[in-house]
Computed example of a mutant assay.
Amino acid sequence: MIKRRLKELDLLRFLAALAVVIFHYAFRGYARGDMSTMPYPLLAEPAKYGYLGVELFFMISGFVILMTASNNNLKAFFISRVVRICPAFWVCCTLTFVITLAIGQPRYTADFYQYVMNMTFLSDALGVLPIDGVYWSLFAEIKFYLMISILLGFKQIEKIEAYLVAWLLISAVSEIFVMEKLRWVLVTDYAAYFIAGATFYVIWTKGFTITRVFLLVGALVLAGYTAIVWADVLETKYLTDYNNLIICSMIILFFIIFLMIATNKTSAIGALNWTALGALTYPLYLLHQMIGFMIFNIVYPAVNPHLLLWGTVALMIGGSYLIHKTIEVPIARSMKKFLSFSLIHVRG
């Protein structure tokens, strides 16, 4: 039985988003010289590990999505996901598109067809470039939502552990034998994080069993394997060295944090109100990358890089808050009412 809202997850979301922002601004943008003209050597070395914030996001998603699906109601789950994803995405995608047209050239370009495909969430399936590169993780999330929706549709969510075991085993086989189509469909590069998050939710509500321990151990091993493989790719891509011990240690830390959450060892942190930080995390993640790089490319080196980087971070956080409060919340509220009425009407 759910006893309280886990507000510590809101703090965790924000820290994950901030890690990704710093990864992009202090390392990724300048690393290949193809996105940002502004180097930031002061933070470049630790910042290059900030991409792991996305993996943490996926663990949070596994936990939260299973919590959302626990009422075994497909309609309620569908409405909650549409209302959560669409308003902020539409606003941030539109802003990024307009700003790209206004100040992005010659480095950045976008066209209306690309914009429409992004707005309809079809760009990944149709091979259309995203308006902002961060959208790739959203498409991975949507595949996870579809898997959960299928289980809800067939009234199988109560058997989630069996499906998590199957997903883990198939993902491991697909990774080892490089079965590309299956890897794309089942998001096997990141399946371990979704599986771990979902398993920690089950442990939080029902406690430990041998199956749940197996899922956690298996997910940790798969996460470590895929992370090391991906680090090799990043080393070639960014011409830098990654320390596998640091990467694996960070992943283990994520598991330890969730173990503490699942066993109610973080209630003191959860007693504080982190809701506002959690609420602006999604628009911050969607908004920051391309717009931030365009700002850097226009203003640097005229403005001090420290002022420029941290000022842009503050601008993105402030902008995300305004988007959430003035646009996302009202649109989400209206969409929820509309969808709830429409689906009841169709059912009737």
Results as ranks from 00 to 15, higher is better:
residue 217 V to L: 15
residue 321 Y to H: 08
residue 171 S to K: 10
residue 197 G to H: 01
residue 333 R to N: 13
residue 64 V to T: 13
residue 60 I to W: 02
residue 249 S to K: 00
residue 322 L to W: 13
residue 118 N to A: 04
residue 210 I to E: 03
residue 132 D to K: 04
residue 49 Y to T: 05
residue 101 L to S: 04
residue 343 L to I: 06
residue 125 A to V: 13
residue 69 A to H: 11
residue 55 E to D: 15
residue 104 G to C: 08
residue 279 A to W: 02
residue 137 S to P: 03
residue 260 M to S: 07
residue 205 T to E: 12
residue 224 G to A: 03
residue 335 M to I: 14
residue 138 L to A: 06
residue 205 T to W: 01
residue 188 T to R: 05
residue 11 L to P: 00
residue 114 Q to T: 14
residue 93 C to Q: 08
residue 4 R to G: 02
residue 245 L to N: 08
residue 278 G to Q: 08
residue 81 R to W: 12
residue 73 N to P: 00
residue 190 Y to P: 00
residue 222 L to Y: 04
residue 292 G to H: 03
residue 142 I to G: 01
residue 60 I to A: 05
residue 199 T to R: 13
residue 14 F to M: 06
residue 333 R to V: 11
residue 92 C to N: 15
residue 307 L to F: 08
residue 99 I to P: 12
residue 341 F to H: 11
residue 147 M to C: 14
residue 198 A to S: 15
residue 11 L to N: 00
residue 298 I to R: 12
residue 258 F to G: 12
residue 137 S to Q: 00
residue 291 I to F: 09
residue 281 T to G: 10
residue 155 K to P: 02
residue 318 G to V: 13
residue 332 A to R: 15
residue 27 F to V: 13
residue 78 F to D: 01
residue 324 H to P: 07
residue 223 A to V: 08
residue 280 L to A: 07
residue 216 L to A: 06
residue 153 G to Q: 11
residue 263 T to W: 03
